[in-house]
Design a protein around this nucleic acid. Structure first.
Length: 171
DNA sequence: CGTGGAATGAGGG
DNA sequence: CCCTCATTCCACG
């Protein structure tokens, strides 16, 4: 399903959310800027599943409230053992807190670079809070964006900053 | 300050 | 094999 992010947060930005009967498996930011409207909205509220209700409700709450914590069921359907270890570790970073790639690497007996690469491949952004990981010297990257290489379509670093300030991580 | 190399895990040519 | 990544640290000038 396509979930619109409130335009007061980011205009022309939506989330594409993939799920099975019971679990979310993939989330992706998509730009609705040029496209003549994305028409993948739910047809009616009658045949909406309870998972879909939960998704809509919880994301609405998340963007509305500063300290809202997700409790949606998710599943990693891809990723190596190492990557999944990193992703699970991300879910243990509490809202409002930050870790550096180096700190996370130390916890996992790995290296900062490898951790950053696993974060880069996080299939469930926002729910699995890779945005709470920053570099030792600054903001770090998000969805492939870095300070030196920026996506032209979506300003992912601006999204990361918004998420962090919204969660009052004090960045 | 800047620059370069090494270590790390994964994917691609 | 080679290279490139959402990094970091340490050595050198």
């Amino acid at each position: 399903m396509i979930l619109n992010i409130p335009s007061s947060v980011f205009p022309n930005l939506s989330l594409s959310i993939i799920y099975t009967d019971t679990k979310i498996t993939n989330i992706e930011f998509i730009s609705t800027k040029k496209n003549n409207k994305i028409s993948a909205e739910l047809s009616s509220d009658n045949d909406i599943t309870s998972l879909e209700q939960q998704i809509k409700y919880q994301f609405k709450q998340y963007f509305l409230l500063s300290g809202f914590q997700f409790s949606l069921a998710f599943q990693f359907i891809k990723g190596t053992e190492f990557q999944q270890r990193v992703w699970y570790a991300l879910t243990e970073i509490p809202i409002g807190k930050l870790m550096t790639y180096g700190q996370l690497a130390e916890k996992l007996n790995s290296s900062p670079r490898a951790v950053g690469n696993a974060c880069r491949n996080n299939p469930l952004p926002i729910i699995v809070p890779c945005h709470r990981v920053v570099s030792a010297s600054g903001i770090g990257g998000y969805a492939g964006d870095t300070l030196t290489r920026q996506n032209t379509d979506i300003d992912f670093l601006a999204i990361k900053k918004w998420l962090l300030s919204h969660e009052r991580a004090g960045f």
